[in-house]
């Protein structure tokens, strides 16, 4: 199965429910192929949860949803040991986190303690409950949504360590006028919206993932990725730059991007395209930097600073 053809099929399936936002869908698929977690952020009412649900439905596997509120406890996420009086022993009851696709809706409404309960499972794909470790069968993908932190009433910023575990952070834009017209027309009658069919089987995901790893990255592009990452660590407005986990995520995302364009090699433009999506949320800005720019703007500056490799020479 060709990656680009498969992506086209999935987009068509999701297109049954989601109108527009094609780029966002493509980027989420990029993350899925890499078994990466995705954080969707935008103002209320732009379809984050609908998109996350639709994507989750295309994956053939277990699906769980946690609606985060300030009173959700870490044990509500991971699970508990409970005493079974019939058997006279403690039994393990795993939480909703043990699944293939986890939709973490409004993740920033949970307290930092509850948010932290996802740290282990997101990185190591296992969950430890009272000294008992439960391995999660691949694929394991977290699709999280959050509203931008405008008012701090009842919301908690995600800690940096948690943000770093997200493969991508995507902002969903408002739909274009024509797309909004289509949305309006689709919702004119209160008919039930179609549900996408599950087409991302475990086997397909594994096959795609293996294919993507075959995409060639030349030494020049490799150096370009490293230069970008290094520059994020040296920029005066960045307190904490991209982590090595970020480097790996960028490499994987550009390979997938190339495969999705039906190429067997990565170009610097792939890196330029994916770097803001994969690295921006991993950077912590200084106080001065945060008052003047946002992370995407700083990432744009970083990309401007780093020399882009070209065939015969180096051009800024």
């Amino acid at each position: 199965m060709e990656t680009h053809q498969f992506v086209k099929d999935v987009k068509a399936e999701i297109g049954k429910v989601i109108i527009g936002n094609e780029d966002t869908v493509e980027w989420i698929l990029n993350a899925l192929i890499n078994e990466g977690h995705v954080l969707l952020e935008s103002v209320p009412g732009t379809g984050k949860t609908t998109l996350a649900k639709s994507i989750a439905r295309t994956i053939d596997g277990d699906f769980n949803r946690i609606q985060f509120t300030p009173d959700v406890l870490p044990s509500d996420v991971t699970g508990i040991h409970f005493f079974n009086p019939k058997e006279q022993q403690f039994e393990l009851r795993v939480g909703p986190v043990v699944t293939n696709v986890l939709l973490a809706d409004e993740i920033n409404r949970a307290t930092p303690r509850t948010q932290s309960s996802l740290l282990e499972v997101m990185e190591e794909k296992q969950v430890t409950i009272d000294r008992e470790t439960v391995k999660i069968e691949p694929p394991f993908i977290v699709l999280a949504t959050q509203n931008p932190i405008e008012s701090q009433q009842g919301t908690f910023d995600l800690p940096e360590a948690q943000l770093d575990r997200f493969f991508m952070k995507l902002k969903m834009p408002y739909p274009k006028i024509e797309e909004e017209r289509q949305i309006m027309q689709a919702h004119r009658m209160d008919t039930e919206r179609p549900i996408p069919n599950p087409i991302f089987t475990k086997e397909v995901l594994k096959e795609l993932s293996e294919k993507v790893r075959q995409v060639h990255i030349s030494e020049a592009v490799e150096n370009y990725i490293l230069d970008i990452v290094r520059t994020t660590r040296e920029h005066p407005y960045i307190e904490v730059g991209a982590s090595p986990r970020g480097t790996i995520a960028l490499m994987k995302s550009v390979q997938t991007e190339a495969a999705m364009r039906n190429r067997s090699y990565v170009t610097p433009s792939d890196v330029k395209k994916m770097a803001p999506l994969v690295l921006s949320h991993r950077m912590v800005l200084t106080l001065e930097g945060a008052t003047k720019h946002n992370q995407k703007e700083i990432m744009g500056e970083v990309l401007q600073q780093v020399n882009v490799p070209v065939e015969h020479s180096v051009e800024r």
């Binding site: 300030p70 040991h81 409970f82 005493f83």
Partner: peptide
Amino acid sequence: PITSYGTRDYAPGDPLNRIHWKSTAKKQV
């Protein structure tokens, strides 16, 4: 009292409204 982040075994002196009934039912303690 609203922002609870976990549970522990009941200790004498804990007010009744501090008891987490769901967790008590699950653990039987």
